[in-house]
């Protein structure tokens, strides 16, 4: 427990950096020297009231921040993890949180507990709706795709296996518009679809070899077609395409045919490749190897904001808030900046 608070951000300085679509709102300062590894926004329920909170994670500490007012945040909880280092925060909706590469679990009330959920050769993991967690472990013939469902108090309620494909799964994404569908990408350029209710593997679709080792950031089903946003950490710059960061693909799940709809490349004069990113609704944000954050509007089809490093500190994390239209941007030193988009 801590009484640390943030200072309201210096708004005019931000306008200079982002003439356009981003406005700095607040900053969460990390007093330790620990490296920042993840940040997320979530609804936190306490005494029957829900508050939009921010979860920050450094190498061995997860912190919960609640808003004091529209500009300031207060750190209300810290959890220390002594048995392992934190790699990612995964949030399960609603209420229950599973943290730390989904190794540990907290009930979210005053009697926190940490439970080992999964260990071993974890390849991919994603928090799903209805308090479910999907994980893939192992490779090829010993690959296991598992769904864990949790009760209100955080206890494990159900475990179910999904049929594994004959390729190693890299990433998962829920499908907006088709509630029980789960999508995955594989190491050899396939997109696979499961039925979460039955565990069936419905389809394996090979996509163009130019989408090698794609990371899937989101999928939605619309009028019989699947629209999928992927990023390509390994994509190379070319004269014709520039530096591609995100691709929007359309797939017909019935025929397994696919096509590219939109290519999000870096604006001229910007250098770098995709390092990590996040997509929410129709906006996609990426941290580039140059330390800059770039944002694309997938409906408009172009880059709408560039956020260069602040105070000579490169960006290392970017997430869209799930509670409002804010962008959470993290630096390696653990400081988190909150922008209104």
């Amino acid at each position: 427990h801590s009484t640390e608070q943030t200072e309201p951000a210096d708004l005019p300085a931000c306008d200079r950096l982002n003439p356009g679509n981003l406005q700095l709102v607040s900053e969460l300062k990390n007093p330790s020297s620990s490296c920042s590894v993840d940040v997320s926004a979530m609804w936190w329920e306490r005494a029957g009231a829900k508050e939009p909170c921010i979860v920050t994670a450094c190498e061995d500490v997860v912190s919960l921040w609640k808003p004091l007012n529209s500009l300031q945040w207060e750190k209300v909880h810290t959890w220390h993890f002594t048995e392992c280092l934190i790699a990612r925060c995964l949030l399960l909706a609603p209420r229950i949180c599973v943290w730390c590469r989904a190794l540990l679990c907290s009930s979210g009330d005053d009697s926190e507990k940490q439970v080992l959920l999964k260990s071993g050769d974890i390849k991919a993991m994603l928090g799903l709706t209805k308090r479910r967690l999907v994980s893939s472990t192992g490779t090829l013939c010993n690959q296991q795709i598992q769904i864990m469902t949790f009760a209100d108090d955080g206890s494990s309620k159900d475990e179910q296996l999904l049929m594994p494909p004959d390729e190693t799964v890299l990433t998962f994404a829920e499908v907006r518009g088709t509630q029980e569908a789960l999508l995955g990408t594989t190491t050899v350029n396939s997109i696979v679809i499961w039925n979460l209710k039955t565990g069936q593997l419905l389809k394996k679709m090979h996509i163009d070899d130019s989408y090698q080792a794609s990371v899937c950031h989101g999928a939605c089903s619309e009028k019989g077609l699947l629209f999928v946003v992927v990023s390509q950490p390994c994509a190379k710059e070319s004269q014709a395409l520039g530096s591609p960061v995100f691709h929007l693909l359309v797939i017909n799940p019935k025929t397994a045919r696919s096509a590219g709809v939109l290519l999000c490349s870096l604006p001229q004069g910007q250098a770098g490749r995709f390092l990590e990113g996040d997509v929410k609704d129709h906006v996609a944000a990426a941290v580039l190897t140059s330390g800059t954050i770039a944002i694309w509007d997938l409906l408009l089809g172009h880059c709408t904001a560039i956020l260069p490093p602040v105070s000579e500190q490169s960006w290392s994390l970017v997430k869209w808030s799930s509670t409002d239209s804010h962008l959470l941007a993290g630096q390696k030193d653990g400081n988190i900046f909150i922008y209104r988009y």
Partner: peptide, 23 residues
């Protein structure tokens, strides 16, 4: 791209694939 290149589209693709796929 044209949706014609993607072949016949089914609005009930999820149900249809679920009935065709092995259990």
């Amino acid at each position: 791209c044209s949706t014609a290149d993607l072949g016949p589209i089914s609005l009930n693709w999820f149900e249809e694939l679920s009935s065709e796929a092995p259990p």
